[in-house]
């Protein structure tokens, strides 16, 4: 993985999941109402950082996600703020109905952390990958959905979560992601997309690691004379329609890149906004109705077309269609 190299981003040697653990610990220190629930993966999600310092506010419910979510919701009912953590695939697939009733429909204040989102989680294979998590959480109307793209925005999201009304989903990842924002005074506000690179010829919209990949793509396209705007759509819901419509109108073509299935993913939601308010040529980078396989992240993103090169290809097509 060479995320952000072409764009000249500062690398971070820690995987995003460790950044999440750091951020969660900071939030737990600052807010004694915060409790953490773990499905026996705290040493993979890094939620366990809280366990060492606040053992009484950390609950391992074992390999039983349905109960995990229910206990978390009950803790909220007793006046606490739960972070319910596990792999996104296990939480959303094992405990979808519990999240639906006890969290989403009940509109409780709680955060669900889905770690190991996407395909870049090492060589564990498709059973552990969260490639459908954003589609699933999207099916629960009351959730705010956040996909951080770098260490600073992960910190900002985890810190902001307890002050957001209603349930929140934050996707975490196992890969390191380069710095896009400064750690101090991070310009990050829930529901407000960020333009991380200006450009007039087309817009690349991404979330998670695809923001850095999009910046790499933009650097490559610039060498061809195409100036791409890059937008970090860190909040998938509520979606920042204004920024999307402005990007479509001002640049005339849109590429959406996501480490997720295209079906029901971020691109399809962005496309709905564009189609309704500012139809322009669009192209999509993501997984096309496949289960991915075991393999090193760098090999997988190549084979399954989630690289900066793939974004460039989509961008050239969208740019060409714009003139047609």
């Amino acid at each position: 993985m060479e995320l952000g190299k072409k764009a000249g981003l500062t690398q971070c040697n820690k995987p995003l999941r460790n950044i999440f653990g750091d951020a969660l610990l900071e939030v737990a220190r600052a807010n004694e109402r915060v409790v953490v629930l773990d499905g026996d993966l705290g040493n993979s999600t890094m939620a366990e950082y809280v366990r060492y310092e606040f053992p009484d506010r950390f609950f391992n419910l074992g390999i039983a996600e349905s109960n995990l979510v229910g206990v978390g919701a009950g803790l909220a009912g007793a006046g606490l703020y739960p972070f319910i953590t596990s792999f996104s695939s296990f939480l959303l697939c094992n405990a979808y109905d519990q999240i639906r009733l006890a969290v989403a429909m009940s509109e409780i204040d709680a955060t669900v952390i889905g770690s190991h989102g996407g395909i870049t989680l090492g060589k564990d294979g498709p059973t552990q990958m969260g490639i459908e998590d954003l589609a699933l959480i999207g099916g629960l109307p009351t959730f705010t959905i956040i996909v951080p793209c770098d260490p600073a925005s992960m910190h900002a999201a985890v810190k902001a979560a307890p002050s957001i009304k209603g349930p929140v989903f934050i996707r975490s990842s196992r890969v390191p992601m380069p710095y896009i924002y400064p750690l101090e005074d991070t310009p990050w506000e829930v529901g407000k997309a960020n333009i991380v690179r200006e450009g007039a010829d087309l817009t690349i919209i991404g979330c998670g690691m695809m923001v850095a990949a999009g910046l790499d793509a933009a650097a490559m396209l610039a060498e061809e004379g195409i100036e791409a705007r890059v937008v970090d759509l860190h909040t998938i819901r509520p979606m920042d329609k204004e920024s999307i419509v402005a990007a479509a109108k001002e640049t005339g073509a849109v590429v959406v890149a996501e480490e997720h299935l295209l079906h029901g993913g971020v691109g399809s939601n962005v496309a709905r906004v564009v189609a309704e308010s500012a139809p322009v040529p669009m192209r999509f980078v993501g997984l096309r109705d496949v289960y991915v396989e075991s393999g090193a992240p760098a090999d997988l993103v190549k084979k399954y077309n989630l690289t900066a090169d793939d974004i460039c290809t989509a961008a050239r097509e969208a740019y060409a269609a714009k003139g047609a």
Binding site: V35, D56, R57, F59, S66, N67, V69, G70, V71, G72, A73, G74, L75, A76, G77, A78, G79, L80, D97, Q98, L101, A102
Partner: peptide
Amino acid sequence: QGLSLGLGHVLGGRL
């Protein structure tokens, strides 16, 4: 689903 919720309330009350 209710028993899990009940346990959550118990643990919360304890805290």
